[in-house]
Write a protein that binds this DNA or RNA. Structure first.
Length: 613
RNA sequence: GGGGGCGUGGUGAAGUCUGGAGUUCACGCCGGCCUGUCAAGCCGGAGGUCGCGGGUUCAAAUCCCGUCGCUCCCGCCA
């Protein structure tokens, strides 16, 4: 980390003998000094990370974002008054003048980048005192996250968190470098926009000037970037804050950041090439490794068939196998019934899991919670027999074929689900991750998933856009004739089982756009009312265009090997959408509400009274 | 909206199943000693309404009910 940073204040640093003055705090930074700097007189400033006081000589670890530097204080050297020296505590902010000295092999600390040297203090000044902290900044104990969030400014001092902030900045810098080199134009789009009923729930903002009317915060800059294509902006990008008001997850916050990009006269291949270049640059800068190109590709159908999900983690096998043919003539009613209704029977070989009965029952519960009607588990015995509650319903040929299809060996756990394709895929896809997904993110497996369906069938039977309604179908006539089977020119980038982002070739002709709206059951009248302005824009000469959006929070968190995106967001919100530091969201004055013509519903006011608010 | 986990001095954990004195461990904090440590060491000390409310009981951190907060998952997330 420090190694990549250019020395700060090089010109100042060569000054002779900096004297402690009111306005000069430092001439260099603690983490930047190295063997070879011995003999130099420097001034550094930062926080007292730790203090080791031997009564006579004392050691201070001076910390700033560049790292730690050991400062040696001899009480008889006149560095500062005895009171000042004995009063130094953790997290005091100090400025120290001293001479860099080599520590010698006996005293070197190989854990620190600066471990071969130390600063022998000649002068020390306290810039700011610090009370005892509400939690320790070392990694000895894992502090409750709400406490970390309440004191996020302290949490961010921890070297690991400082490294996350730096990684995020480096990632965005790499993205900008790639796109700037290709003459992309960075354009900002509004954050107060019109609400659209599709997709996620909007975050609404009441208008004061038009009471009873609302802005929405953008779920993405989608339509604005398409307008920019129509405007003649040839290649666009933006580091864009986006807002989706759905429930939180480890990888989802109400506000998040995307690298949004779009290009005119572009097709799918142009986008995918650029996405690879961006990923290669970011990974190179954060991990120091060069990813092999091209990235592997799967169509959506292949991904679903082999991994049960549209965002497969391909770091491990355990692929889903179609067992429908094995059980085509089965006497086992559960399977036969599903196959008779046009469903499918599939399974995975979870390998040697060594689960006891309770663990296997847990898997069944997990499958049920995922929407399965049941889960068949089988353990291959040493003699090749199958131990399973349903083994007695299967004949020898079926058992043999099953073992063959799943390439099963003694000790292996086989998990089988029978249902409609969607359910089977979801359940086996999730169980596959439960059983086999590697811990952490040491290995990086990027993947492009292409050829998503245009539509998916909602619970009420209606068609909804799988990507969004501005995505170009492969073939518009086929789409009209058989919408459920229609393939779109939409694609995702997946990393280690996480969707890093998605994009598509867009519709650039108003007739096609109208047909997609029609297929979605949006009447011409509705389409005109909601998207008329956009349909109009398409009529004045629209270049074919395509684009993508990378989720920056997810990308950085995975590259940093972290389990949730809050670690790479400076000031995230809790799962219930609150910020323990600032207390948002908060109630506002009645006068503020009156000004915007809003009244809180009586039952909500009543609930405040109950909660003692 | 639903399910799971967690909540104990400043921090983290054990104690909770099987009720019996706020008990223990590590870190931090305060004071003392200590001239080469680096998660310094040694000695001493302070610090808790066991998230909150109610119930059962002679007795509740422990059992029951409710509630709040954090977190993971399902639903949701074009």
């Amino acid at each position: 980390m420090a190694g990549n940073m250019p020395p700060l204040h090089t010109s100042v640093r060569t000054r002779r003998s900096p004297l402690m003055s009111a306005e000069l705090y430092r001439t260099t930074r603690p983490g930047l000094l190295r063997l070879g700097d011995e003999g130099q007189t420097v001034q550094v400033a930062g926080w007292v990370h730790n203090r080791r006081d031997h009564g006579g000589i004392a050691f201070l670890d001076l910390r700033d974002a560049t790292g730690l530097l050991q400062v040696v204080v001899d009480p008889e050297a006149g560095v500062a008054s005895a009171d000042v020296l004995s009063g130094l505590r953790r997290e005091y902010v100090i400025s120290v003048v001293g001479v860099i000295a080599a520590r010698g092999a006996d005293h070197a600390n190989t854990e620190l980048g600066t471990g071969e040297i130390e600063l022998v203090a000649t002068e020390l000044r306290v810039l700011s005192a610090a009370e005892a902290l509400p939690f320790q900044l070392d990694d000895r104990v894992e502090v409750d996250e709400s406490l970390r969030l309440q004191y996020r400014y302290l949490d961010l001092r921890r070297p690991a968190m400082a490294a996350n902030l730096q990684a995020r900045s480096k990632a965005i810098r790499a993205m900008r470098r790639v796109l700037d080199d290709q003459d992309f134009l960075e354009v900002e789009t509004p954050t107060l926009v019109a609400s659209t009923p599709e997709g996620a729930r909007d975050v609404l903002v009441p208008s004061r000037l038009r009471q009873g009317h609302f802005y929405a915060l953008p779920q993405s800059p989608q339509l604005f970037k398409q307008l920019l294509m129509i405007s003649g902006v040839d290649r666009y990008y933006q580091v864009a804050r986006c807002y989706r008001d759905e429930d939180f997850r480890a990888d989802r916050q109400i506000e998040f950041t995307q690298l949004d990009l779009e290009g005119a006269f572009w097709g799918q291949e142009d986008v995918l090439q650029t996405l690879e270049e961006i990923a290669v640059a970011v990974v190179s800068d954060l991990r120091g490794i060069e990813l092999a190109r091209p990235f592997p590709r799967l169509t959506w159908q292949e991904a679903m068939d082999r991994y049960g999900t549209d965002k497969p983690d391909i770091r491990f096998g355990m692929e889903v196998q179609d067992l429908s043919a094995v059980f085509a003539e089965t006497e086992f009613k559960a399977f036969a019934g599903v196959l008779g209704r046009g469903g499918t029977v599939r399974g995975i070989n979870a390998g040697e899991q060594g689960l006891a009965r309770a663990g296997l029952d847990g898997l069944v519960d997990r499958a049920l919670s995922l929407g399965a009607k049941g889960l068949v588990w089988m353990v291959v015995e040493d003699d090749g027999a199958l131990r399973s509650p349903v083994a007695k319903f299967l004949n020898d040929a079926e058992k043999a074929a099953l073992i063959g299809e799943l390439d099963a060996s003694p000790g292996d756990l086989l998990l089988i689900v029978a249902d409609e394709f969607k359910v089977v895929s979801k359940v086996l896809g999730a169980l596959r991750l439960d059983m086999g997904q590697p811990e952490g993110h040491e290995e990086l497996a990027f993947l492009m998933v292409t050829d998503f369906p245009v539509f998916e069938v909602a619970d009420d039977g209606a068609l909804v856009a799988m990507h969004h309604p501005f995505t170009a179908p492969e073939d518009i006539d086929e789409m009209v004739a058989n919408p459920q089977a229609a393939v779109s020119r939409a694609y995702d980038v997946v990393l280690n089982g996480s969707e890093l982002g998605s994009g598509s070739v867009r519709i650039h002709d108003p007739d096609t756009q109208a047909k997609v709206f029609a297929a979605l059951g949006i009447s011409e009248e509705d389409a005109t009312r909601r998207f008329g302005w956009f349909m109009d824009a398409l009529r004045y000469g629209t270049p074919p265009h395509a684009g993508f959006a990378y989720g920056i929070d997810r990308m950085v968190s995975i590259l940093q090997g972290l389990p949730n995106i809050r670690e790479v967001i400076p000031f995230p919100k809790t799962q219930t959408g609150s910020d323990p530091l600032t207390g948002s969201p908060s109630r506002v004055e009645d006068a503020q509400l009156a000004e915007i013509g809003i009244a809180v519903a009586p039952e909500v006011v009543a609930s405040w009274a109950e909660d003692g608010e």
